[in-house]
Amino acid sequence: MATGGRRGAAAAPLLVAVAALLLGAAGHLYPGEVCPGMDIRNNLTRLHELENCSVIEGHLQILLMFKTRPEDFRDLSFPKLIMITDYLLLFRVYGLESLKDLFPNLTVIRGSRLFFNYALVIFEMVHLKELGLYNLMNITRGSVRIEKNNELCYLATIDWSRILDSVEDNYIVLNKDDNEECGDICPGTAKGKTNCPATVINGQFVERCWTHSHCQKVCPTICKSHGCTAEGLCCHSECLGNCSQPDDPTKCVACRNFYLDGRCVETCPPPYYHFQDWRCVNFSFCQDLHHKCKNSRRQGCHQYVIHNNKCIPECPSGYTMNSSNLLCTPCLGPCPKVCHLLEGEKTIDSVTSAQELRGCTVINGSLIINIRGGNNLAAELEANLGLIEEISGYLKIRRSYALVSLSFFRKLRLIRGETLEIGNYSFYALDNQNLRQLWDWSKHNLTITQGKLFFHYNPKLCLSEIHKMEEVSGTKGRQERNDIALKTNGDQASCENELLKFSYIRTSFDKI
């Protein structure tokens, strides 16, 4: 039985969820670079991206490699990797027998973001014989899940209580170790020597080791999670996991709180800001991140802002960003909400898709409305799209047979046209069989910064309504002859009103 693990408890099935942008060198404390989270699957090609990484700022997932063999891993080693800020997950990587050479110096898994409450997941690794993470000293947050690894031993010899604050939620089941077939031998045991430290858990006094050649490092209890030197002297209180010299914040392997210019500090002093819960960055760093993602459509890219001495992905609820200094300031009234469309555009074809934009005031991208039916549609669209004030790209209304009016965009005031449909149009209306009105132009103002209007096959939309939009939106004169079809717009509506004058002759039985 794995020490510190839980057996036999019912657990939810383990679901495996399925960018080499360097964020800056980590400095003297770390020998390499800070790398983003990685999802490495199918083959070993991307694994080489770990070569210079000291910190993975995010998670590391290595999974679904069915053609790899043990010899493929023999020359692979990433000794610079010290810390993973989120979680480490391995799933069905064939041929991998140990992690001792792959990650010989991995010391800390912070667990800032977890995989279903777990910071370390080893699942269905069919050839893994031992973990071998002999320098792993601290899992700051989260638990361990090690399950269905039929060859995995050296679990009962690990004292997880020396690595985690609590072992109650560890789930370590259905491994070879369960069948008591392992016969784990710690260093020196074969020669009758006791080389590794022994600890007591559940009444068992057991030597602690990761492999037959690597003991588990056990520091004096007084050192807590700070770690200790090879001689057993406690590291500085700002260290986490390990250090090369005692009581020196510049000799830590990793930091308990924050890293700044080669030393570990309790908090980031001005003019620095907390970033990702582990390091200090200056304003320029946060500003660069903001600008890199301002026009990016890459998933996970955030326009970072500053709030409460932190550089964070977005302002919290009730705050909006001051564009001059990136500071989050309290909103006066309802907060603006910028919604970034991942692929640059979004099609609204149902109430469900409209709900995804609920509360958005600025759309960074283009909207395509293609709704053919739905219950209580006008009210639903207004509830979900009615706060949109600005669209950076274009607005396209296409084959939306259920629409009679666009009044559900009740606050839309600006279409920038930074991206144009077919390279020309910022407003595009095609084949809307029941569209009769755009907006009530006596109450609604709309500016279209650039781009043209396109109207074709809107049989109940009168040309007068379209011409009014040209005047109000500032697009009059931009359109070419064929942009607004004269014969297919309003051709099934009563669009022309003329005053009919009647004269009559009164007659009676005795007068003409």
Rank of each mutant, 00 (worst) to 15 (best):
L29A: 15
Y30P: 02
Y30S: 15
Y30R: 03
G32N: 06
V34A: 14
V34P: 10
P36T: 13
M38Y: 10
M38D: 08
M38A: 13
M38G: 10
N42D: 06
N42E: 02
L44S: 07
C53W: 00
E57T: 05
G58L: 00
L60A: 02
L60M: 06
I62Y: 00
I62C: 02
I62K: 00
L64Y: 01
M65K: 02
K67S: 05
K67Q: 02
T68Y: 05
F73T: 15
F73K: 13
S77Q: 14
L81V: 05
I82Q: 05
I82T: 14
I82M: 10
M83W: 05
M83D: 04
I84R: 00
I84F: 01
T85F: 03
T85P: 00
R92T: 02
Y94C: 10
E97D: 06
L102K: 00
P104W: 01
N105G: 06
T107S: 09
T107H: 12
I109A: 00
R110W: 07
R113I: 09
F115S: 08
F116I: 01
Y118W: 04
M125S: 05
H127K: 07
K129M: 09
E130H: 09
L131R: 00
N135G: 12
N138R: 15
I139D: 00
G142C: 02
G142E: 00
S143R: 10
K148R: 14
N149S: 03
C153Q: 01
L155R: 02
T157K: 06
I158W: 02
D159T: 02
R162I: 08
L164E: 02
D165F: 07
S166I: 12
S166K: 02
V167R: 02
E168Y: 15
E168D: 03
N175V: 01
K176G: 15
K176Y: 15
D177W: 06
D178P: 07
G183H: 13
I185Y: 12
P187C: 05
G188V: 05
G192S: 08
T194V: 09
A198N: 12
N202T: 04
G203H: 06
F205W: 12
H212A: 10
V218Q: 05
C223L: 00
C223T: 00
S225N: 13
G227V: 02
E231T: 08
G232C: 12
L233N: 13
C234F: 02
C234I: 02
H236Q: 04
E238R: 13
C239P: 00
L240R: 06
L240T: 07
C243D: 01
S244T: 07
D247Y: 08
P249N: 11
P249F: 04
P249W: 14
K251W: 06
C252S: 01
C255Y: 01
D261R: 03
D261G: 06
G262C: 04
C264L: 00
P270A: 13
P270C: 09
P270H: 08
P271L: 06
P271Q: 07
Q276I: 07
R279L: 05
C280W: 00
F283W: 07
F283R: 11
F285L: 08
D288M: 12
D288Y: 08
L289D: 08
L289M: 05
H290A: 03
H290Q: 15
H290E: 07
N295F: 12
N295V: 02
S296V: 06
R298K: 11
G300R: 09
G300E: 07
H302M: 10
H302Q: 12
Y304P: 02
Y304G: 04
I306W: 15
I306L: 07
N309D: 14
N309Y: 05
P313L: 10
P316F: 09
P316V: 07
G318F: 11
Y319S: 15
T320V: 07
L326S: 07
L327G: 09
L327E: 12
L327M: 13
C328R: 00
P330Y: 08
P334W: 13
